[in-house]
Design a protein around this nucleic acid. Structure first.
Length: 419
RNA sequence: GGGGGAAUGUCCCGAGCGGCAAAGGGGGCGGACUGUAAAUCCGCUGGCUAAGCCUUCGCAGGUUCGAGUCCUGCUUCCCCCA
């Protein structure tokens, strides 16, 4: 961003932590935030049962908005999800059923309570679903009150539309309307709740500015926009897509240990940036951690992992994950809260093959894959490399507590528990 | 409505004279080197009761000893004309 020096805590924090990609009017917004009068919202799609790390920057922004004495609104896109945002997509989104959207909404909301304090007080965060007003809209009224303010010429020139047209890709009318609905949301929130700020990812800039524009034409108070940069890793990959798939925020889809590991494996070059964005550690502490060199930077990664996990899953779960990792990687001993799979004594007595055991543990998808991994020396039983693909588990492979450890590579470990 | 083109290994892109478990990438996984990092190098990347068997090239039939490849019909998508 520019050299503007904000006076408000809100914009100061966002600026020094690297949240700001674009802002419609820093000075104007700053003046509101100084008085604690910024009322900002971010819309969240309900296309999946859980948000993933990609939305975390946005959530952190709402968190800071509230922490710095302003009001935060989490808008659930129950209505807009029925339409589908074409931004950043080169294909039409799958149309979800209303039931799917409802259950997705519940899953997503469970995450917000970790980052925001909800309630009825003036500084409490609130959540609201745009289905509330979008589903009852009257087509003719909508055209007269809102549609007249939109220029199709300009809509056609928007990135999300233009790209589709240039590539000769289909864009349905329903998607074409998405930006109108999002702009309309902004004005509804402005009128109902006094909302004056919309935040979002950089891909939302066009949609947000449309909302500001519509607000002006429809006579709301002045509205503002802030967008975050697209967060990629230093090697250019999008955040949150890894080997195993997306990094979900809901614990049932990504347990705290896995979440901790995700942050622990951050690239060197990303550590400082991520500490600023995804933890609430003071800037001084972050500067100290960022100065670490070479192998010492691992200490910073551990802090990053624990702090980020604590924000989402609580301090206790984060410490437990850190301890599990310490035992597993530094001591090479058994940590009891690694993922555990139970097997019956009878099954073992019958001669459970190692190949099947690895499949059962969910480490490999098929025995074929297990065989391949054995050939390249990737599988281990109790830390000993498995070389015989015909081997079977025997009683001696289990320790006194009836536990055997199966591993693939350095990072994947699963315990087998005999019951 | 008329004419033309496309669909391939269930991650993606993409070659494929009738003998094909099917070239090559990307991505991913494992190994070496390291620091649970990056970069680099090597290997692997349909399933199984595994020297064998089974299932894959949009769907359904057909020709053939043998079909991803040829023929017929269908579905979906794209382009041009109206």
């Amino acid at each position: 961003m520019t050299d503007f020096t904000p006076r408000s805590d809100f914009l100061s924090v966002l600026q020094e932590r690297g949240f700001i990609h674009q802002c419609s009017d820093m000075a104007g917004l700053d003046a509101l935030a100084v008085k604690g009068e910024a009322i900002g919202y971010i819309g969240f799609d309900c296309t999946a049962p859980s948000l993933h790390v990609g939305s975390l920057v946005q959530i952190m922004m709402l968190h800071w908005l509230q922490q710095t004495g302003n009001k935060a609104i989490a808008l659930m896109g129950g209505g807009t999800t029925m339409v589908g945002d074409p931004s950043g997509r080169d294909e039409t989104r799958r149309i979800l059923t209303v039931e799917d959207i409802q259950s997705n909404k519940r899953g997503i909301f469970s995450v917000f309570s970790r980052f925001l304090n909800f309630g009825d007080g003036p500084r409490d965060a609130i959540t609201i679903d745009n289905a509330e007003w979008l589903t009852t809209l009257n087509w003719i009224e909508m055209l007269r009150d809102v549609g007249r303010h939109f220029s199709v010429n300009r809509m056609l020139s928007m990135d999300s539309v233009r790209m589709r047209l240039e590539r000769d890709q289909e864009m349905s009318f329903i998607e074409f309307n998405y930006m109108i609905l999002q702009a309309y949301d902004f004005t509804v929130l402005a009128r109902r709740l006094g909302c004056n700020l919309q935040m979002g990812g950089s891909d939302q800039w066009g949609n947000i500015v449309n909302g500001i524009d519509l607000g002006r034409r429809m006579g709301t108070h002045q509205l503002y926009a802030v967008t975050t940069p697209l967060i990629t890793t230093a090697s250019g990959a999008k955040m949150g897509k890894t080997a195993a798939g997306a990094i979900w925020l809901n614990a049932d889809q990504m347990p705290p240990y896995g979440y901790w590991q995700f942050w622990r494996n951050t690239e060197d070059a990303d550590v400082a940036r991520f500490l600023k964005l995804f933890t609430t550690l003071p800037m001084g502490e972050i500067a100290r951690l960022a100065a670490l060199q070479g192998a010492e930077i691992n200490a910073a990664k551990i802090t990053l992992a624990t702090e980020a996990t604590a924000l989402l899953h609580g301090r206790e779960a984060a410490e437990a994950a850190a301890e599990t990792a310490r035992k597993t990687f530094e001591e090479g001993t058994l940590a009891s809260d690694l993922p555990t799979i139970e097997v019956s004594g009878a099954e073992i007595a019958a001669g459970l093959g190692l190949l099947s055991a690895f499949v059962k543990a969910g480490i490999v998808p098929s025995t074929g894959e297990a065989r391949r991994q054995i050939k390249s020396g990737g599988l281990r039983l109790n830390d000993a490399i498995v070389s015989d693909e015909r081997a079977a588990l025997v009683a001696g492979d289990f320790n006194a507590d009836g536990i055997a450890k199966l591993s693939m590579g350095k990072k994947k470990h699963v315990l087998l528990k005999r019951v």
